[in-house]
Design a binder for these strands. Structure first.
Lengths: 172, 172
DNA sequence: AAGCAACTATAGCCGTGACAATATTCCCGA
DNA sequence: TCGGGAATATTGTCACGGCTATAGTTGCTT
Protein backbone atom coordinates (compact mmCIF):
# COMPACT_ATOMS: atom_id res chain seq x y z
CA UNK A 1 0.00 0.00 0.00
CA UNK A 2 2.79 2.41 0.85
CA UNK A 3 5.07 3.85 -1.76
CA UNK A 4 7.63 1.30 -2.76
CA UNK A 5 11.21 2.43 -2.97
CA UNK A 6 11.60 0.67 -6.29
CA UNK A 7 8.94 2.87 -7.83
CA UNK A 8 11.55 5.55 -8.31
CA UNK A 9 13.61 3.25 -10.47
CA UNK A 10 10.70 2.83 -12.84
CA UNK A 11 11.96 3.54 -16.36
CA UNK A 12 9.11 5.95 -16.90
CA UNK A 13 10.23 8.05 -13.96
CA UNK A 14 13.82 8.13 -15.11
CA UNK A 15 12.74 8.98 -18.64
CA UNK A 16 10.86 12.02 -17.44
CA UNK A 17 13.77 12.92 -15.23
CA UNK A 18 16.05 13.02 -18.24
CA UNK A 19 13.71 15.24 -20.19
CA UNK A 20 13.17 17.61 -17.29
CA UNK A 21 16.84 17.88 -16.39
CA UNK A 22 18.00 18.36 -19.96
CA UNK A 23 15.43 21.07 -20.39
CA UNK A 24 16.27 22.74 -17.10
CA UNK A 25 19.98 22.72 -17.83
CA UNK A 26 19.56 24.21 -21.26
CA UNK A 27 17.09 26.81 -20.03
CA UNK A 28 19.57 27.95 -17.40
CA UNK A 29 22.27 28.41 -20.04
CA UNK A 30 19.88 30.30 -22.26
CA UNK A 31 18.73 32.56 -19.46
CA UNK A 32 22.29 33.43 -18.51
CA UNK A 33 23.11 34.43 -22.07
CA UNK A 34 19.88 36.40 -22.49
CA UNK A 35 20.72 38.29 -19.35
CA UNK A 36 24.04 39.35 -20.86
CA UNK A 37 21.96 41.24 -23.38
CA UNK A 38 19.48 42.60 -20.87
CA UNK A 39 16.68 40.23 -21.81
CA UNK A 40 14.62 37.83 -19.75
CA UNK A 41 13.62 34.51 -21.31
CA UNK A 42 10.08 35.76 -21.78
CA UNK A 43 11.29 38.92 -23.45
CA UNK A 44 13.45 36.95 -25.81
CA UNK A 45 10.49 34.76 -26.64
CA UNK A 46 8.30 37.78 -27.33
CA UNK A 47 10.95 39.42 -29.46
CA UNK A 48 11.41 36.23 -31.46
CA UNK A 49 7.71 35.68 -32.02
CA UNK A 50 7.22 39.22 -33.20
CA UNK A 51 10.29 39.28 -35.42
CA UNK A 52 9.25 36.13 -37.22
CA UNK A 53 5.72 37.38 -37.82
CA UNK A 54 4.67 39.28 -40.96
CA UNK A 55 5.18 43.00 -40.43
CA UNK A 56 7.12 42.34 -37.24
CA UNK A 57 3.87 42.59 -35.34
CA UNK A 58 1.25 40.48 -33.62
CA UNK A 59 -2.01 41.14 -31.84
CA UNK A 60 -1.80 40.85 -28.07
CA UNK A 61 -4.02 37.79 -28.14
CA UNK A 62 -1.99 36.03 -30.80
CA UNK A 63 1.19 36.87 -28.96
CA UNK A 64 -0.24 35.25 -25.85
CA UNK A 65 -1.22 32.17 -27.85
CA UNK A 66 2.32 31.83 -29.16
CA UNK A 67 4.04 32.25 -25.83
CA UNK A 68 3.74 30.67 -22.42
CA UNK A 69 1.87 33.71 -21.14
CA UNK A 70 -1.75 34.53 -20.48
CA UNK A 71 -3.22 37.62 -22.10
CA UNK A 72 -2.74 39.62 -18.93
CA UNK A 73 0.81 38.39 -18.76
CA UNK A 74 1.35 39.65 -22.28
CA UNK A 75 -0.09 43.01 -21.36
CA UNK A 76 2.50 43.32 -18.64
CA UNK A 77 5.56 42.12 -20.49
CA UNK A 78 4.61 44.39 -23.38
CA UNK A 79 4.32 47.23 -20.88
CA UNK A 80 7.87 46.64 -19.75
CA UNK A 81 9.28 46.17 -23.21
CA UNK A 82 7.50 49.24 -24.50
CA UNK A 83 8.97 51.20 -21.64
CA UNK A 84 12.40 49.88 -22.62
CA UNK A 85 11.87 50.82 -26.24
CA UNK A 86 11.98 47.29 -27.59
CA UNK A 87 8.50 47.45 -29.07
CA UNK A 88 5.49 49.72 -29.56
CA UNK A 89 1.75 49.33 -29.33
CA UNK A 90 -0.18 50.12 -32.47
CA UNK A 91 -3.95 50.35 -32.68
CA UNK A 92 -5.70 48.12 -35.17
CA UNK A 93 -7.78 50.37 -37.42
CA UNK A 94 -10.26 47.72 -38.52
CA UNK A 95 -11.00 46.40 -35.03
CA UNK A 96 -10.85 48.87 -32.21
CA UNK A 97 -10.68 46.14 -29.61
CA UNK A 98 -7.34 44.87 -30.83
CA UNK A 99 -3.93 46.38 -30.60
CA UNK A 100 -0.67 45.25 -32.08
CA UNK A 101 2.72 44.88 -30.52
CA UNK A 102 5.35 45.94 -33.07
CA UNK A 103 9.06 45.41 -32.70
CA UNK A 104 11.06 48.62 -32.93
CA UNK A 105 14.38 48.97 -34.67
CA UNK A 106 15.99 48.84 -31.24
CA UNK A 107 14.17 45.60 -30.55
CA UNK A 108 15.40 44.03 -33.77
CA UNK A 109 18.87 45.27 -32.99
CA UNK A 110 18.76 43.70 -29.57
CA UNK A 111 17.55 40.41 -30.99
CA UNK A 112 20.26 40.62 -33.60
CA UNK A 113 22.87 40.95 -30.90
CA UNK A 114 21.45 38.11 -28.86
CA UNK A 115 20.79 35.46 -31.49
CA UNK A 116 24.35 34.52 -32.48
CA UNK A 117 25.29 33.68 -28.91
CA UNK A 118 22.03 31.82 -28.49
CA UNK A 119 22.72 29.66 -31.52
CA UNK A 120 26.22 29.06 -30.25
CA UNK A 121 24.92 27.82 -26.93
CA UNK A 122 22.41 25.52 -28.59
CA UNK A 123 25.17 24.03 -30.66
CA UNK A 124 27.58 23.75 -27.78
CA UNK A 125 25.27 22.12 -25.27
CA UNK A 126 22.61 20.45 -27.36
CA UNK A 127 22.93 19.73 -31.06
CA UNK A 128 26.71 19.54 -30.98
CA UNK A 129 26.66 16.91 -28.27
CA UNK A 130 25.39 14.27 -30.66
CA UNK A 131 26.45 12.92 -33.99
CA UNK A 132 24.00 13.67 -36.82
CA UNK A 133 22.45 10.23 -36.67
CA UNK A 134 21.75 10.35 -32.93
CA UNK A 135 20.53 13.93 -33.18
CA UNK A 136 18.07 12.98 -35.88
CA UNK A 137 16.76 10.14 -33.72
CA UNK A 138 16.43 12.44 -30.73
CA UNK A 139 14.55 15.06 -32.69
CA UNK A 140 12.27 12.45 -34.25
CA UNK A 141 11.37 11.23 -30.81
CA UNK A 142 10.82 14.70 -29.46
CA UNK A 143 8.64 15.52 -32.43
CA UNK A 144 6.46 12.51 -31.77
CA UNK A 145 6.04 13.48 -28.14
CA UNK A 146 5.51 17.13 -29.02
CA UNK A 147 2.82 16.28 -31.55
CA UNK A 148 1.12 14.02 -29.03
CA UNK A 149 0.97 16.52 -26.20
CA UNK A 150 0.48 19.46 -28.54
CA UNK A 151 -1.60 21.84 -26.42
CA UNK A 152 -3.96 22.47 -29.30
CA UNK A 153 -5.37 19.04 -28.56
CA UNK A 154 -5.72 19.70 -24.84
CA UNK A 155 -8.98 20.65 -23.24
CA UNK A 156 -7.91 22.13 -19.92
CA UNK A 157 -4.55 23.45 -20.98
CA UNK A 158 -3.67 26.69 -19.32
CA UNK A 159 -1.55 28.34 -21.96
CA UNK A 160 -2.54 27.52 -25.54
CA UNK A 161 0.94 27.53 -26.96
CA UNK A 162 1.01 27.17 -30.69
CA UNK A 163 3.37 24.97 -32.61
CA UNK A 164 6.64 26.45 -33.75
CA UNK A 165 6.26 28.48 -36.91
CA UNK A 166 2.56 29.06 -36.75
CA UNK A 167 1.69 32.70 -37.39
CA UNK A 168 -1.93 33.75 -37.94
CA UNK A 169 -2.48 36.32 -40.66
CA UNK A 170 -3.40 39.70 -39.26
CA UNK A 171 -6.34 41.49 -40.86
CA UNK A 172 -5.19 45.03 -40.31
CA UNK B 1 22.76 43.55 -40.27
CA UNK B 2 19.11 43.12 -39.37
CA UNK B 3 17.66 39.83 -38.26
CA UNK B 4 17.11 37.60 -41.23
CA UNK B 5 13.79 35.86 -41.51
CA UNK B 6 15.52 32.61 -42.37
CA UNK B 7 17.25 32.57 -39.03
CA UNK B 8 14.11 31.12 -37.51
CA UNK B 9 14.29 28.13 -39.82
CA UNK B 10 17.72 27.31 -38.47
CA UNK B 11 17.70 23.65 -37.44
CA UNK B 12 19.13 24.60 -34.07
CA UNK B 13 16.18 26.84 -33.36
CA UNK B 14 13.67 24.20 -34.35
CA UNK B 15 15.50 21.59 -32.28
CA UNK B 16 15.20 23.70 -29.16
CA UNK B 17 11.59 24.40 -30.04
CA UNK B 18 10.86 20.69 -30.05
CA UNK B 19 12.48 20.17 -26.68
CA UNK B 20 10.75 23.14 -25.12
CA UNK B 21 7.34 22.30 -26.50
CA UNK B 22 7.52 18.63 -25.61
CA UNK B 23 8.54 19.58 -22.09
CA UNK B 24 5.86 22.22 -21.77
CA UNK B 25 3.14 19.92 -23.01
CA UNK B 26 4.10 17.14 -20.65
CA UNK B 27 4.46 19.53 -17.72
CA UNK B 28 0.96 20.80 -18.31
CA UNK B 29 -0.44 17.26 -18.24
CA UNK B 30 1.48 16.48 -15.11
CA UNK B 31 0.34 19.64 -13.36
CA UNK B 32 -3.29 18.93 -14.17
CA UNK B 33 -3.06 15.46 -12.68
CA UNK B 34 -1.18 16.67 -9.61
CA UNK B 35 -3.89 19.20 -9.02
CA UNK B 36 -6.48 16.44 -8.94
CA UNK B 37 -4.68 15.26 -5.84
CA UNK B 38 -4.23 18.70 -4.33
CA UNK B 39 -0.54 18.98 -5.17
CA UNK B 40 1.42 21.59 -7.05
CA UNK B 41 4.30 20.43 -9.25
CA UNK B 42 6.78 21.69 -6.69
CA UNK B 43 5.03 19.86 -3.89
CA UNK B 44 5.06 16.65 -5.87
CA UNK B 45 8.74 17.12 -6.51
CA UNK B 46 9.43 17.68 -2.81
CA UNK B 47 7.36 14.69 -1.81
CA UNK B 48 9.17 12.50 -4.32
CA UNK B 49 12.62 13.63 -3.29
CA UNK B 50 11.89 13.03 0.34
CA UNK B 51 10.22 9.67 -0.17
CA UNK B 52 13.17 8.34 -2.15
CA UNK B 53 15.69 9.47 0.45
CA UNK B 54 16.87 7.29 3.31
CA UNK B 55 14.61 7.77 6.29
CA UNK B 56 12.11 9.68 4.17
CA UNK B 57 13.91 12.85 5.14
CA UNK B 58 16.31 15.43 3.80
CA UNK B 59 18.00 18.52 5.15
CA UNK B 60 16.53 21.77 3.84
CA UNK B 61 19.72 22.54 1.96
CA UNK B 62 19.87 19.15 0.31
CA UNK B 63 16.22 19.39 -0.59
CA UNK B 64 16.92 22.71 -2.27
CA UNK B 65 19.85 21.18 -4.15
CA UNK B 66 17.63 18.39 -5.45
CA UNK B 67 14.79 20.61 -6.57
CA UNK B 68 14.43 23.66 -8.72
CA UNK B 69 14.11 25.85 -5.65
CA UNK B 70 16.42 28.14 -3.73
CA UNK B 71 16.83 27.56 -0.02
CA UNK B 72 14.35 30.28 0.79
CA UNK B 73 11.94 28.75 -1.68
CA UNK B 74 12.30 25.46 0.14
CA UNK B 75 11.62 27.14 3.45
CA UNK B 76 8.34 28.42 2.10
CA UNK B 77 7.11 25.32 0.34
CA UNK B 78 7.97 23.30 3.45
CA UNK B 79 5.98 25.82 5.48
CA UNK B 80 2.94 25.20 3.33
CA UNK B 81 3.33 21.43 3.26
CA UNK B 82 3.87 21.29 6.99
CA UNK B 83 0.70 23.31 7.47
CA UNK B 84 -1.09 20.80 5.23
CA UNK B 85 0.29 17.89 7.21
CA UNK B 86 2.30 16.39 4.34
CA UNK B 87 5.60 16.66 6.17
CA UNK B 88 7.22 17.73 9.42
CA UNK B 89 10.33 19.59 10.43
CA UNK B 90 12.72 17.69 12.65
CA UNK B 91 15.77 19.19 14.32
CA UNK B 92 19.11 17.62 13.58
CA UNK B 93 20.62 16.67 16.94
CA UNK B 94 24.24 16.65 15.77
CA UNK B 95 24.07 20.02 14.00
CA UNK B 96 21.76 22.58 15.46
CA UNK B 97 21.88 24.70 12.34
CA UNK B 98 20.26 22.04 10.22
CA UNK B 99 16.73 20.82 10.23
CA UNK B 100 15.17 17.95 8.37
CA UNK B 101 11.99 17.80 6.39
CA UNK B 102 10.36 14.42 7.00
CA UNK B 103 7.43 13.03 5.05
CA UNK B 104 4.47 12.14 7.21
CA UNK B 105 2.28 9.11 6.73
CA UNK B 106 -0.27 11.43 5.17
CA UNK B 107 2.40 12.66 2.78
CA UNK B 108 3.32 9.16 1.72
CA UNK B 109 -0.34 8.35 1.34
CA UNK B 110 -0.84 11.35 -0.89
CA UNK B 111 2.14 10.42 -3.01
CA UNK B 112 0.84 6.89 -3.18
CA UNK B 113 -2.45 8.13 -4.54
CA UNK B 114 -0.80 10.41 -7.06
CA UNK B 115 1.92 8.20 -8.51
CA UNK B 116 -0.16 5.65 -10.44
CA UNK B 117 -1.90 8.35 -12.45
CA UNK B 118 1.41 10.08 -12.98
CA UNK B 119 2.96 6.94 -14.39
CA UNK B 120 -0.08 6.43 -16.58
CA UNK B 121 0.29 9.92 -18.02
CA UNK B 122 3.98 9.41 -18.70
CA UNK B 123 3.21 6.23 -20.54
CA UNK B 124 0.30 7.68 -22.44
CA UNK B 125 1.95 10.85 -23.66
CA UNK B 126 5.64 10.10 -23.60
CA UNK B 127 7.12 6.62 -23.41
CA UNK B 128 4.13 4.96 -25.03
CA UNK B 129 4.33 7.23 -28.05
CA UNK B 130 7.45 5.50 -29.31
CA UNK B 131 8.46 1.97 -30.05
CA UNK B 132 11.17 0.62 -27.75
CA UNK B 133 13.91 1.23 -30.26
CA UNK B 134 13.01 4.87 -30.83
CA UNK B 135 12.48 5.43 -27.13
CA UNK B 136 15.91 4.09 -26.34
CA UNK B 137 17.45 6.40 -28.94
CA UNK B 138 15.53 9.36 -27.53
CA UNK B 139 16.62 8.65 -23.98
CA UNK B 140 20.22 8.13 -25.04
CA UNK B 141 20.20 11.52 -26.68
CA UNK B 142 18.58 13.19 -23.71
CA UNK B 143 21.08 11.59 -21.40
CA UNK B 144 23.95 12.98 -23.43
CA UNK B 145 22.48 16.46 -23.32
CA UNK B 146 21.61 16.15 -19.65
CA UNK B 147 25.12 15.06 -18.75
CA UNK B 148 26.56 17.92 -20.76
CA UNK B 149 24.47 20.68 -19.22
CA UNK B 150 24.43 19.01 -15.82
CA UNK B 151 24.24 22.02 -13.47
CA UNK B 152 26.98 20.58 -11.30
CA UNK B 153 29.35 21.72 -14.01
CA UNK B 154 27.87 25.20 -14.24
CA UNK B 155 29.41 28.19 -12.54
CA UNK B 156 26.59 30.72 -12.50
CA UNK B 157 23.69 28.30 -12.34
CA UNK B 158 20.87 29.54 -10.16
CA UNK B 159 19.46 26.28 -8.91
CA UNK B 160 22.04 23.55 -8.37
CA UNK B 161 19.80 20.66 -9.29
CA UNK B 162 21.40 17.32 -8.66
CA UNK B 163 21.25 14.41 -11.01
CA UNK B 164 18.36 12.03 -10.66
CA UNK B 165 18.92 9.55 -7.88
CA UNK B 166 21.62 11.42 -6.04
CA UNK B 167 20.94 11.47 -2.32
CA UNK B 168 23.58 12.69 0.14
CA UNK B 169 23.93 10.65 3.28
CA UNK B 170 22.59 12.46 6.32
CA UNK B 171 24.72 12.42 9.44
CA UNK B 172 21.94 12.61 11.99
C1' DA C 1 -32.85 48.01 -35.55
C1' DA C 2 -32.00 46.05 -31.08
C1' DG C 3 -30.17 43.08 -28.13
C1' DC C 4 -27.06 39.72 -26.83
C1' DA C 5 -23.14 36.74 -26.85
C1' DA C 6 -18.36 36.52 -27.96
C1' DC C 7 -14.00 38.76 -28.19
C1' DT C 8 -10.14 41.98 -26.73
C1' DA C 9 -7.19 44.36 -23.66
C1' DT C 10 -6.37 45.90 -19.17
C1' DA C 11 -6.41 46.43 -13.94
C1' DG C 12 -6.99 44.51 -9.17
C1' DC C 13 -5.67 41.09 -6.24
C1' DC C 14 -2.95 37.41 -4.80
C1' DG C 15 0.40 33.38 -4.55
C1' DT C 16 5.02 32.11 -5.64
C1' DG C 17 9.76 32.23 -5.43
C1' DA C 18 14.44 34.74 -5.98
C1' DC C 19 17.86 37.81 -3.75
C1' DA C 20 19.90 39.97 0.07
C1' DA C 21 20.19 40.53 4.88
C1' DT C 22 20.18 38.37 9.41
C1' DA C 23 20.75 35.27 13.38
C1' DT C 24 22.53 31.14 14.88
C1' DT C 25 25.79 27.44 14.87
C1' DC C 26 29.90 25.00 13.53
C1' DC C 27 34.72 24.38 12.58
C1' DC C 28 39.40 25.34 11.92
C1' DG C 29 43.68 27.58 12.80
C1' DA C 30 46.55 30.49 15.66
C1' DT D 1 40.96 28.76 24.02
C1' DC D 2 39.42 31.97 21.17
C1' DG D 3 38.30 34.45 17.04
C1' DG D 4 36.89 34.63 12.44
C1' DG D 5 35.07 32.61 8.37
C1' DA D 6 31.80 29.18 6.46
C1' DA D 7 27.42 26.94 6.68
C1' DT D 8 22.34 26.80 7.62
C1' DA D 9 17.69 28.32 7.89
C1' DT D 10 14.65 32.01 7.93
C1' DT D 11 12.58 36.63 6.89
C1' DG D 12 11.90 41.16 4.36
C1' DT D 13 11.28 42.89 0.04
C1' DC D 14 10.36 42.70 -4.57
C1' DA D 15 9.21 41.20 -9.49
C1' DC D 16 6.55 38.26 -12.06
C1' DG D 17 2.49 36.33 -13.80
C1' DG D 18 -2.16 33.81 -13.32
C1' DC D 19 -7.16 34.40 -12.39
C1' DT D 20 -11.10 37.15 -12.33
C1' DA D 21 -13.57 41.18 -13.06
C1' DT D 22 -14.35 45.00 -16.09
C1' DA D 23 -14.95 48.17 -19.93
C1' DG D 24 -15.14 48.68 -24.62
C1' DT D 25 -16.07 46.68 -29.29
C1' DT D 26 -17.87 43.61 -32.74
C1' DG D 27 -21.02 40.89 -35.21
C1' DC D 28 -24.77 37.74 -35.33
C1' DT D 29 -29.69 36.79 -34.61
C1' DT D 30 -34.15 37.83 -34.33
Amino acid sequence: MWVNQNVFDDPRITAVGLLVEAHAGLSARFAAQFEEHGLSPVEFEVLTRLARSPGNQLRMTDLAAQTSLSTSGVTRVVDRMERDGLLTRRACPSDRRSSYAVVTAAGLQRLDETLPGHLRIIEQWFTGQLDPEALRALLDGLRRVRDAVHPGATAGSTGPVLIGGEAPAGRC
